[in-house]
Measured scan of single mutants.
Amino acid sequence: ASVAVIAAGTQGNIFATSALRSMRFLQILRMVRMDRRGGTWKLLGSVVYAHSKELITAWYIGFLVLIFASFLVYLAEKDANSDFSSYADSLWWGTITLTTIGYGDKTPHTWLGRVLAAGFALLGISFFALPAGILGSGFALKVQEQHRQKHFEKRRMPAANLIQAAWRLYSTDMSRAYLTATWYYYDSILPSFRELALLFEHVQRARNGGLRPLEVRRAPVPDGAPSRYPPVATCHRPGSTSFCPGESSRMGIKDRIRMGSSQRRTGPSKQHLAPPTMPTSPSSEQVGEATSPTKVQKSWSFNDRTRFRASLRLKPRTSAEDAPSEEVAEEKSYQCELTVDDIMPAVKTVIRSIRILKFLVAKRKFKETLRPYDVKDVIEQYSAGHLDMLGRIKSLQTRVDQIVGRGPGDRKAREKGDKGPSDAEVVDEISMMGRVVKVEKQVQSIEHKLDLLLGFYSRCLRSGTSASLGAVQVPLFDPDITSDYHSPVDHEDISVSAQTLSISRSVSTNMD
């Protein structure tokens, strides 16, 4: 405001104040949320940038038409019409005319000016109207692209899951042992070998009828009888010197917790746990005396209480009078009846079946994303299906024409109403129809010849004498029936064969 007042002088105070007050009108834009329509302006900018070359070309040609039209109309009207006294007036008329506004304040009066105005109007309006069409088509394409992008975003994750499931299904095939990355992934998420051994031990116990592997080994086996189970490696608790092959000598807290839970599941009659010990102070733990958990001091820290809870689970003690015997301790020893080589084939089979199920689920979810969402998608899918159906029908028609023997030239002739090819031409065609016709002709010829021969033979049998045999009239074959199959017997006289037959029969009768 200060700059405006200084620039306008003393009389500019009122002007500056009114100008600043008129800017209050811009507050109405906040009512229509114009300040939060950044996406709309961004869309407009992207459309203009995408079609910038077309817009520049249309505007450039339109500007050239405007300059030439205004100049030529000015030359034609400057002497006869006072409205075109300057080139600026003519340029104003050209702008209003070519933009199809047409105020009518300035019009050419001479015939030359009117002809020039009409010609440049028809030429220039087309170029001035091009930017509107370019922007409209650009907006339509952009909206369609955003629509497809939205659908693509919805299909991206199911497609990625389907590709991942397909690759993992491919890589978990037993015949592709060189693909090891997927197996490394499952090695990292699978439970430890100790848990798998416990699982298979329970399965084997159920197969043995509820007997433990130790009891199965204690059962008497006759001499020479084959053992029911192959000899396997035996594993004891981590306190002993022997372990399962492939295990580490260090046992983690999870393994100890699972070991304690498995020992508690063996039965309360074979294992008696004394009350857990509780320390009397955060600094020292008295293991010899058993106290109640309700006497825990409230001033303990979080670490002390955590250690106390761990001691409740991981440090059970047995009383002296209830101490288990050596046999019970041997039964409680952890027996590992299986090795990694025995378990891994079954584990890989389970993983393979899981990968198949996940692949089928991913495939079903991806197919669900291909379903249409709204009416536009339904129409688009219907149009695509219609085009596909037309293509299939056209391909089927082409194959039928190839089989029947109607080529493209014959199809055009039928469409024009011309006469089709004759039967002889159809026979000569190298097509399925021509071959079928040729075979039918040959079969008819053979059938006719057989009928003639059978009739001749029956007449010979009825006559009974050589004289009557020679008097029999043998009809000749019709050459038209034989089609294109020409037998060497067709052109010979059958009477010669009949005479030869009669001579042979007379000779045979004389010999008798």
Rank of each mutant, 00 (worst) to 15 (best):
R392Q: 10
K449T: 15
L390M: 05
T172I: 05
P316A: 09
L169P: 02
Q473P: 01
F302C: 08
D377V: 10
S431R: 11
Y186F: 11
L179P: 09
R168G: 11
M259R: 09
R207L: 11
W167S: 06
V216M: 01
K394T: 01
Y373D: 08
I503L: 14
K376T: 07
R406L: 07
K367M: 07
L370R: 05
G391D: 03
P372L: 05
H202R: 14
D374N: 13
I354L: 01
F308I: 05
W167G: 11
G409E: 06
Q381H: 09
D374A: 07
R168C: 04
V350D: 12
L370V: 08
K358T: 04
I393M: 13
E368G: 03
L198R: 09
H486N: 14
E321V: 13
I393L: 14
G405V: 03
W167L: 14
L454W: 12
E285D: 05
P372Q: 06
D484V: 08
L357R: 06
S171P: 08
R364W: 04
K412T: 06
T369P: 01
G405D: 06
R505L: 08
L370Q: 05
H386D: 11
E380D: 12
I163V: 09
V400E: 06
E326Q: 14
I446F: 13
R462S: 15
G407E: 08
P372R: 02
S463P: 08
K394N: 09
Y185S: 15
Y184H: 08
L450M: 12
W300S: 13
R352P: 01
T369R: 10
R168S: 04
R371P: 07
L390V: 11
P372S: 04
I393N: 10
M389L: 08
K449E: 10
K394R: 04
Q473L: 14
S468G: 02
K332E: 15
R392W: 11
R313S: 01
R168L: 04
E368D: 03
R406W: 11
Q397R: 12
R352H: 09
L360P: 09
I163T: 08
F359S: 12
D173V: 05
K412E: 07
L450R: 14
I393F: 15
D388V: 09
A165P: 03
R392P: 06
G405A: 14
K376E: 03
S333C: 13
L450P: 10
R265L: 10
S192C: 07
Q397K: 06
R392L: 10
R364M: 08
L360Q: 09
D377H: 15
